[in-house]
Simulated assay, not measured.
Amino acid sequence: MILSVLSAHAPLAANSAPTHKVYISSEELAVTVGADAATVEGQFQFKSARGSGAKSSTFVAIPVWIPFKAAQGNTSLVSMVKVQDNNSFHKLEGPLLKAWDETIGLKFTVGNQEVPVGMLRIVRPWSFTKSEGTPKAWLHDGWILALAMIYCPPPLMQGSSEARLRYRQPLRKTRGGAEFLYLPQFYYQPEGTTTTDLEKFAMKVQAQQGLSLSIGGALLPAGQSATLPLIHHQAIKVLVTAP
């Protein structure tokens, strides 16, 4: 999942919000993959987990995957990747804000209200020890995480809330082609529920004109699209194979 709710004081991998637990009741994504970057557009439905505080605030962390080896000549991407103090919070302002807007351009709205990104947290998952609890699903060669931290005051995330998301994700250059990565994450789901219903949880992938893709070894010809399931911690990787 692209949206994880957590507390500002929670451990990195805990993905918990003790003040207001929220779960995703639907997630619909549309991903258009280009030669160098993909555009991700999402529509999410949120619900308060049973027993959560009715008037508490929520922090939303939006993990955006960024190639560790920045594309040559992309100065904005280089400046983001070079943030040295791993796992620290950085106020999104000045040169960092400029680089973020030029590279990622993330927009997050709840209902009709756009909610800005307040802090950025650059995470290199492989740099943590096992005792720090980094999920194995976060470990992907050549990728780091930029966690966009968004503060949602009540009543934005109360009851049943709809959110929309749009951002650009730079692709990682590999020998097999440019790679796109997405990691679904779901927490606090009611007991007995799953995310296998493609009417509620799905990603539609298509390529820009003139490109073909490879998804799990299967070729997706130019001009066609594929609908993929969103399963907790089952990574989706897409390669641009042509031209």
Rank of each mutant, 00 (worst) to 15 (best):
E41A: 12
S25D: 15
S25W: 08
Q113V: 13
D36Q: 11
W65R: 11
Q208P: 07
W138K: 07
N87Q: 08
E28M: 12
M157N: 03
H90M: 14
P11V: 02
K130T: 13
P67E: 03
R164N: 15
L181E: 08
K98P: 08
P116M: 01
G53M: 05
T109V: 13
S16M: 11
T58W: 00
K47M: 15
G73M: 05
R164C: 10
Q209S: 15
Y151G: 11
P11Q: 02
L139I: 11
E93M: 04
A35G: 10
N74A: 14
L145R: 15
P243K: 12
I215V: 11
V115L: 12
K55S: 13
A235D: 02
L228T: 01
G42N: 06
T129C: 12
L239V: 03
P154F: 14
R50K: 13
G111E: 07
T75R: 13
W65T: 04
G216R: 06
Y23C: 06
S127I: 08
F89K: 12
A235M: 05
P170Y: 00
S161Y: 10
G94S: 12
E114Q: 15
L92Q: 02
I104C: 02
F68H: 13
S131A: 15
G94V: 06
A49P: 01
P221L: 01
D101C: 08
M203L: 11
N86K: 05
K91D: 13
I144M: 13
D36L: 11
S214M: 04
H233C: 09
D85N: 13
Q169A: 07
L145V: 13
F128H: 10
N74L: 05
N87D: 15
R124Q: 12
K130Q: 13
G34V: 02
N112A: 11
L145M: 15
R168A: 09
G73C: 03
P184C: 04
D141G: 09
V83N: 13
V31Y: 04
L181I: 10
E199C: 06
P155R: 04
P67N: 08
M119L: 15
S7Y: 01
S25H: 14
T32G: 08
V83C: 12
L156S: 04
L219Q: 11
S79Y: 03
A38W: 05
A202E: 02
I231F: 06
P155G: 01
L145E: 13
A99H: 05
H233V: 07
Q208T: 14
S79H: 05
L96S: 09
D101F: 07
R50G: 11
A178R: 09
I2P: 15
L219N: 06
P221K: 00
V110C: 03
G216D: 02
K21I: 09
E93V: 06
T103E: 02
A70N: 07
Q72V: 12
V205C: 03
P190T: 00
E102F: 05
E114F: 10
G133L: 03
A30S: 14
L230D: 06
D85A: 14
P155W: 06
P125L: 09
P170L: 01
H232R: 01
E28P: 05
M80Y: 01
G217N: 01
A222W: 04
S161K: 11
L120S: 02
S56F: 10
R121G: 09
F89M: 13
M203F: 07
